[in-house]
Amino acid sequence: MVTTKRSGEVVSALLADRRTRKLSFTGSTEVGRVLLRQAADNVLRTSMELGGNAALIVCADADLDVAVDGAMVAKMRNIGESCIAANRIYVEEPVREEFTARFAERMGALSVGHGLDDGVDVGALIDEASATKIDELVADAVARGARVLVGGKRPDGPGHFYPPTVLVDVPEDARLLEAEIFGPVAPIISFTSDDEVMAKANDTEHGLVGYVFTRDLQRALRFTEGLETGMVGVNRGLISDPSAPFGGVKQSGIGKEGSHEGILEYLDVTYAAIDLP
């Protein structure tokens, strides 16, 4: 274990050393690209668990109690600062109004404050840059026509706080539909067909996880096969399990963590063809 305030320099030196055999990284796609370039010089084996832009899809036949609970978990675990947090919430038109009202009520009931205080649900973001970025993403969406149902305004005073926020009427050119929000902001977008929402969900460079809520097994399997992600949660907002392979596709990563597949990332296979005398 090496602790440092100059991680770039230290990691560059480690990757340049011929004794290094393997690089495993969890972090942003931007940093992952840099590390992959550095790992190429020594042709290192790599595992990359990078950024996400998860779509959460609520179909009209979903159990809305399950869907609202699942959306709260998928969006607000670690107050949204998670690579597998729901970034975009797509709701089929017949249940859009009811789901949105119930979800917004749950988000609005969360209390914001210092994480060690009793009764606090949402603590501070990791740093000032994160709070500023989220504030700018919300302002951009509103400027393009989105409406704020809950939150949407950074509180006065010190600290890197941002309130749970729900946006509707979010236009397709809003920046927060492309960026990894990494905070407690939930844009809700309506859809009318599976093909439409599948195309929107896949219209991203990321492919870490997707979430689908439906009572129709065939529909769930179509989404599971059609979503360009490494993982899919069906009728649940929590997918992490040490016994399951964790990882994404596209620019969300290379390889898997956890489970048997994760162990294989650290093993070399040797094939021996032998003739005995």
Rank of each mutant, 00 (worst) to 15 (best):
E205G: 08
N202S: 00
A54M: 06
E228D: 02
D275Y: 10
G108T: 04
T192Q: 10
D65F: 11
V34K: 13
T204F: 03
N42F: 03
G151E: 02
E97G: 11
F25R: 01
I181L: 01
Q251A: 01
D69R: 15
Y271E: 11
L36E: 10
T100Q: 01
E225H: 10
Q251K: 07
A104S: 09
D169E: 15
A13L: 12
L167P: 12
A39Q: 06
R106S: 13
G119R: 05
A179I: 13
V249L: 00
G51F: 02
G8S: 06
E92H: 10
G226H: 03
M48F: 07
I188G: 05
G52R: 03
E225T: 14
E265H: 03
P164V: 05
K5W: 12
F191D: 01
I84P: 09
V11F: 06
S259H: 00
F191Q: 06
R18L: 15
R21F: 14
E178P: 11
K75A: 07
M48T: 07
F161V: 13
F25V: 02
V10Q: 01
A272G: 13
G207D: 01
L217I: 15
G113C: 00
E205V: 14
G52Y: 02
A273D: 14
V269K: 03
A13H: 12
G51E: 05
Y211G: 03
S7V: 15
D169A: 11
G253A: 06
